[in-house]
Design a protein around this nucleic acid. Structure first.
Lengths: 147, 147
DNA sequence: ATTATATAGTTCGATATCGCATTATATGGA
DNA sequence: TCCATATAATGCGATATCGAACTATATAAT
């Protein structure tokens, strides 16, 4: 490990951190009052994978502590975007189900972000995204496995 | 903008968010009690660019609100890693100077992270970092400019 | 010179995140 | 069956982040 190599990784994570911050800010500016990226991400996940998952499964999918997921789900339930039901297979557990309003929330959010993404794509070609996405996904897998 | 293109950008920012979270967790596990990535980043910036900068300049460099930087600097000052002095050129302003302990904090942190980065580099070649880093930096510049 | 406006930094309040402890239920062993 | 241990979710406390308002100083306009 040369110092130059170490520095490369430092810079990589520095860029990733700043990009995360910038994209979160852009994203949340288009969400309804009180909704954060964490809320959207959960609804998006429930839509794309399947709903009816347990809070624990969601916490693991997003790599956040259970308490954080409890808090996020409480916000979604309060907004009427999900329903919490008892898990018929385990009395300790619950299931998270999307509501129609929840699905509409997701679709509206994606539509609202469309112009921003189009503007971005004009200056940052989608081909570049295709170049780096697999590399980032691989890095994520490696780091997940190392935990 | 095809839906597939839109989805690519969504996935990109999703990966970036998760990687940011994972790298923060790894990083902070090696820092002294109470020190966060935000603290390290400021000390690192003061070392690599120059110290004596104003809080506002630092807030802009990291794209965080002034209040967040005030809080971060208070933590660094309390730990003895920086000194806040009045700015001789502007009575409203201050300057942030590194202390010897601050420089040692940075060096210790980098050393403590060395093994983690070496382990990562064994599974994720530095060449890949070199491939994606310029692309990410470009994306960051574009998004910065769009704000 | 005086006054209006702009800027640097902080204080305050709201809330997201997260670790620790607690409660309720499930599971496995005597 | 009864008890010990494990697990799902939540309650609570600590703190990082961030917007709005505030204070002090600088700058510009008359």
């Amino acid at each position: 490990m040369s110092d130059a190599d170490t520095r490369m990784f430092f810079e990589l994570f520095n860029e990733i951190g700043i990009l995360s911050q910038l994209s979160t800010a852009v994203f949340e500016a288009r969400l309804p009052e009180g909704m954060l990226v964490s809320h959207f991400s959960v609804v998006n996940h429930l839509t794309r994978v399947r709903d009816g998952q347990t809070p624990l499964a969601l916490a693991q999918a997003f790599q956040v502590p259970k308490t954080t997921m409890t808090h996020t789900l409480a916000g979604l339930a309060k907004a009427g975007y999900v329903e919490m039901r008892p898990n018929p297979e385990d009395g300790r557990s619950k299931q998270v189900w999307l509501t129609d309003r929840g699905r509409a929330f997701r679709e509206d959010a994606i539509a609202a972000l469309g112009p921003d993404i189009a503007a971005l794509a004009r200056q940052y070609p989608v081909e570049h995204v295709g170049d780096i996405l697999p590399r980032l996904a691989e890095l994520r897998r490696v780091m997940d496995a190392m935990r």
